[in-house]
Design a binder for these strands. Structure first.
Lengths: 199, 199
DNA sequence: TTGACAACCGAACAGTCGTTCTGTAGCTTG
DNA sequence: CAAGCTACAGAACGACTGTTCGGTTGTCAA
């Protein structure tokens, strides 16, 4: 009747079951598996529900027309860091739920590697000895980036800066000197993240 | 001839392409898509390669016989800090181990959660605003641990210390005061690690 | 030079996929 | 109480899936 197009309902319980399945298997199942997962006995109805989730942004299709998680698939209800009495909901206090930490840190697996930090020359940037640096391998970087460079056949983590025409490596610790490489500066990659384990 | 059963070769480039595809689409493609992804024109050969990756632990099957990422699928290379000369292609060069970031940080998934750090009261411990803290939930901790406590209905990250008979929360930043909670100190969990994403 | 093996191609095939279409039970709405 | 809607069920179907099996090519050792 009304002018506004009213959207069809979509069952949040269905989405949750699918998210749980995905969390366990890291894959979207076929329609017939979805049917039994949702307690539905007609694939046609599964198809209809999928279409709704797709329109709502929870599901999507690959270029190869395979069903995949959509942009909102990993959304969580935003649990503020303020805690309601007793325990907060123990889920991730984040706009998005991380299926894996790995996914949070790594964008291009084939170009990403981990480098263990040696020394304390970057402590003022919150990078401590023993930390694992998530590095995206690429031969050049921008001024201001934290880069992993190769100096004297060893990895060095430093800020990339420019002095006149020359690139230099600046530590984040006054106790260390700026490194001014003679010749070409060889860059292994750019810092994309950091992982630390304590205990 | 030899006694040891020698495994068939499996192409690391294939795995990388699949991992990149998965990172983009969050789904394992079909054999025919895999074929074009790998530059292979026979599905039968894809099937063979998949079997090998499966035996090596990089791929697996759901109970519904759908292909899914295996346990080792999310492994990352941990590069050695000493570099052998040149290193034109660090992918092929040796000198790295493989670990998965999630396994590295999370020991007991059911008791582990992530908490986003607010404020700079722990900068001197290398914990910055915006970092994700890996927290193992438990109601008590040892003196010296970095704990996530609940004070005034909010999460607080601090060192746990003792003053005479009382437990106190000490920040790692001189600009902030020691917190002396009146009554019971409510501990949410103990810091087990840290994750930071830059860029 | 023969044979064994590994790396691939290509065709054939039964099973499964997702779509479409028709049907029906239950609930509103007027 | 008929009209209209939503939430499903069920069958039919062509497209596509992954497997099997029988090639072909290249390499290397005997």
């Amino acid at each position: 009747m009304a002018l506004n197009s009213q959207k069809p309902a979509l069952d949040p319980a269905y989405l949750e079951k699918l998210q749980d399945y995905y969390a366990e298997h890291k894959v979207i199942p076929s329609y017939s598996v979805l049917a039994s997962l949702w307690g539905i006995s007609a694939k046609s109805w599964v198809s209809e529900c999928v279409k709704r989730f797709e329109e709502a942004g929870y599901l999507d299709w690959t270029p190869d027309k395979q069903l995949k998680p959509g942009g909102r698939f990993f959304e969580r209800r935003l649990a503020d860091s303020t805690v309601q009495a007793g325990l907060p909901n123990p889920a991730i206090s984040e706009g998005y739920d991380l299926i894996t930490i790995d996914d949070f840190l790594v964008r291009v697996p084939s170009k990403t590697s981990l480098v263990r930090v040696k020394g304390d020359s970057m402590v003022d940037a919150g990078i401590h000895e023993g930390d694992l640096l998530v590095v995206e391998q690429q031969p050049n970087a921008n001024v201001g980036d934290i880069v992993v460079a190769i100096v004297d056949n060893e990895f060095t983590v430093k800020y990339l800066e420019r002095e006149k025409t020359q690139f230099v490596l600046r530590p984040a610790n006054k106790a260390y000197p700026v490194i001014r490489p003679r010749g070409r500066l060889e860059i292994f990659g750019v810092m994309a993240g950091l992982v630390r384990r304590t205990r």
